[in-house]
Amino acid sequence: MKYALFTGCVAKGAGRELLTATMKALAKLGIEAEEMKDAACCGAGVVQEDSHTMAAVLNARTYALAEERGQDIMNICTTCQGVHRQTQRELDDNPAFKALVNKELDATCGRRYEGKVKIRHFYEVLLQEFGIEKLKEKVVRPLTGVKVAPFYGCYAVRPPAEVSDCSDPDDPDELETLIRALGAEPVSYDERLKCCGFPVLMMNKDNSMKMSANAVAGAQKAGADAMVTPCPLCHLNMDAYQPEFGAVMDEEPHLPVLHFPQLVALALGVPGKELGLDKHIVRMEGTIASM
């Protein structure tokens, strides 16, 4: 089955290397995906603050577009995935709300959300549909000896009933399982489920910086060579602002923050220079840099 790839705004903007790496990884895995060039921003929880109902109409339109093509949606951003799952669950669990949203969707776009489309993040597709054993078979360059600190992103786990599909949202091991399958070693640290602070970057930069710096400090102290996240917003806050963390960290920060598909593509044999690793503010050193 071909997936409808929902890129989200960052993969078309400040994190274009995420889209590049995703397409390379999907090609290596033989997973077909077609970019949804007509899908709108998920709202990121912000359009929802303008109008909860309008944001639901906006997202129901995206689901209707995928349904019209007979495709399931693949997200590459944890925030998009969480917002989509939250919206879809509300539509599916509340028939009156679904009817209201469909009425608006029909009036504005002449479309209708039926409730058939499945929505998953890239990493969930690998785990739940592609399969971990098949992924291991595709690994041609195991990331042996590389210590990777997974950073989930809030929308992957909280509030669990609304957004999460993890087996245990309070103590998930989905990313750890995938990191192991790629041959790398997952690093355990206290901040892996915390908020990176990106949503308040424009409202309270001090708080935002402290949250990201705490996460980077935790991963760095645990001996990680790199962090990896399925959320490009977490990536942006922890990578692009990392040179400013020195003021709130005990030690000098230097921890590359990879997009999850970049890590996958590396293990699948895609050369590092094709994955936009050089676009990151904090660059890789050591094993991965030489790939």
Partner: peptide
């Protein structure tokens, strides 16, 4: 506006 949506 200082809430960061972490959902905790």
């Amino acid at each position: 506006w200082d809430c960061t949506h972490c959902g905790e």
